[in-house]
Every structure is written in C-alpha cells, then in structure tokens.
Computed example of a mutant assay.
Amino acid sequence: MQHATSSRDTKAEIHRAAVHLFSTQGYDKTSLREIAEQVGITKASLYYHYSSKQDLLRAIVGTFLDDIFEVLRQVEDHPWSPEKERELLAAYVDVIIEHRSTGPTLLRDIAAVLAAFGDDLDNLIAQARRFQVWLAGPDPTPADRLRAAAAVETVGAAMSAELDLGISDAEIRAILLDAASAVLARRGTPVEG
C-alpha cells in the first residue's frame, strides 16, 4: 500500500512541475527531461507515469475539462432560478480557482491543447454556450446573453498568467462571484446608447 501512496505523490509532483514549466516556458520549449529534473526523478521514472509529453498535457488539461464539464452539464438538469444561478456560478468559480495554474498553459499553447483535445474542446465550447444561455435567464434579450457571456469571462480572469494578487482563494472566490453577479444583475435593464 505504501507504493501506491508514493506513486500518487510522484505523479502529483510531475503534474505540478509540468504545469509550472509549461506555463512559464511553453509546452514546446519544455522537455520531459526538464520536468523529471525538477521533480528529482529520472526520465525513465517519468515515463512510468506518462508515456509522452502529450500524455502529460492530456492529464493536466483533462482534469480541468472533466471538472468544468461536470459544472456546465448541470444546466441541463436544472431550470434557471436565482438560487440555482448562484449555486452553479459558485461551482464554476471554484473549478476556475482550483485550476487557475492551468490557464496559462491553455492560453499560451492552444495549438498543443487543440491537438490533444480537439473533439473535447468542441464539446466544451458547445457546453459553455449552453451555460451562457442558461445564465442569461428566462426569455433573455441579446443584451442579457451578452451580459451572461461577460459574466463567464469575468470569472475566467482568474486564469490570467499575469494575475498574482497575493490574496487567498476565498478572497478571489468572493471577488469573482461579486463581479460576475453584478454583471448578471443588470439583466433585463434597457441598454442606453
């Protein structure tokens, strides 16, 4: 049983090192040797856990995709209500905060991510659109749909590579929920031009 625990720890260390290196250097410029060296293992040991760099990227981004899909799919089972909106928006914020270190990799190396996840990303985009339509509320106007998209983008700000605020996850969560909710609160109000 001890072997399984140390194996999981090594895998988590590999994951953290890869996220850091992919985010700072880029996917293409990071070698498996560099990741292994940062973790303090041999390249052969790294291959025990991940068969290739793309396999490692799939593991990193795949965890984010699994978690975000779980939240986004919930709109299919729940009619819109203010309470459910707040609950799902909070769950969405929580996933973004948990995976915010993955953000720079997603943004910086989109070609590698597309190569590894083409169909999954198409599904994510479709599901994200359904989530935005749901967030727009019942009988949304075009302005309401734009506000819902803006609310989702507001939450995505937590994944910015340059965002090192030095505040706790709880504070980030509160700020993002407040900002996204403020955008959504304007639903149904006329647009003044």
Rank of each mutant, 00 (worst) to 15 (best):
A174Q: 07
A90T: 09
V113S: 10
L135F: 07
V75M: 03
I60P: 05
V191K: 09
H20G: 12
P79T: 12
P142A: 01
E98T: 15
L89S: 12
Q74D: 04
T42P: 02
A179P: 00
L163Q: 02
D178F: 02
L57F: 06
E83K: 08
D67M: 04
Y50S: 03
L56M: 01
F69Y: 11
E162V: 03
S45I: 06
F22P: 04
L72C: 09
L146H: 11
A111L: 14
E162H: 05
R108A: 13
L163M: 06
A180I: 00
T42S: 11
P140Q: 06
T105D: 12
E13S: 13
N123F: 10
R129K: 12
D144K: 01
Q25F: 13
V113R: 09
I96G: 05
K11N: 11
R8E: 15
H20V: 10
P190L: 05
Q74V: 01
Q127P: 03
D120F: 06
D144E: 03
S81G: 08
P79Y: 09
A157D: 02
V133H: 09
E70P: 05
E192Q: 05
A148H: 07
G62I: 07
F64D: 00
P138T: 13
T63K: 05
E171C: 02
T141D: 00
I167T: 02
T105G: 11
E34T: 05
V19G: 06
E192L: 07
V61Y: 00
Q2V: 12
F22G: 03
P190A: 04
E37N: 15
A115F: 13
V155W: 00
Y92A: 10
R86G: 06
A4R: 15
Q127C: 08
A126S: 12
S181N: 08
A170P: 00
A4I: 10
Q132P: 08
F131G: 03
M159N: 00
E87V: 10
D169Y: 01
S52N: 01
G40P: 04
E76Y: 10
D169T: 02
A148V: 06
S52C: 01
D109I: 13
T63H: 01
T5G: 14
E153C: 03
G188E: 03
A148M: 07
A36N: 10
T63W: 00
L107K: 12
A179S: 05
P142L: 00
H20K: 14
P142R: 01
A128C: 12
A179V: 01
Q132H: 11
S51D: 11
A148G: 09
R86I: 06
R8D: 14
E34F: 04
F69M: 11
V71Y: 07
H20I: 10
A161D: 07
M159L: 01
V155E: 00
V183D: 02
E162C: 02
G166D: 02
R100Y: 10
L106M: 14
L146Y: 09
P140V: 04
P82F: 12
Y47D: 06
D178N: 02
A150P: 00
A150L: 05
A91N: 10
E13A: 15
F117D: 14
R147A: 04
V61G: 00
V95E: 14
D9M: 15
S81V: 08
E85D: 10
P104R: 15
I97A: 09
D164A: 06
A115E: 15
F69G: 06
E70D: 13
V19Y: 14
H15F: 13
Q74E: 08
A36D: 09
D9Y: 14
Q54M: 05
L88Y: 11
